[in-house]
């Protein structure tokens, strides 16, 4: 098993902790980005023979998803600002 798979798993777990402990949506987006990097690293170095198509495909899916997560967070902030109220940010 590649050491990078272990590194990826550790990065993923760190991101997970940040995601669930984040008090605001912004912190959670950062956590999700770290989770995605960790998972991407793990799968990139997982196969016995490196698969560049798989690595690129995973990157091409994870990056837009993190961008969407950030965009949703921005939209939530905008709506909260329009209403003049603080969002109730329940635990994720």
């Amino acid at each position: 098993m590649s050491v990078w798979l272990v590194v990826g798993a550790v990065v993923y777990l760190a991101g997970l902790v940040l995601t669930f402990s984040g008090a605001e949506l912004g912190g959670r987006v950062i956590g999700l980005a770290i989770v995605s990097v960790g998972a991407g690293l793990a799968v990139a170095f997982a196969p016995p023979t490196r698969s560049w198509p798989a690595t690129i495909t995973v990157a091409l899916t994870l990056i837009p998803l993190v961008v969407v997560a950030a965009a949703l967070r921005r939209r939530v902030d905008e709506v909260a600002g329009e209403r003049g109220a603080t969002l109730d940010d329940d635990a994720l």
């Binding site: 798993a9 993923y12 995601t19 999700l32 991407g40 793990a42 799968v43 994720l92």
Partner: peptide, 15 residues
Amino acid sequence: YAELVASTTMLIGIA
């Protein structure tokens, strides 16, 4: 956000 966490967890398992 929950789905993204679930998908990346799945990805770790796949790895």
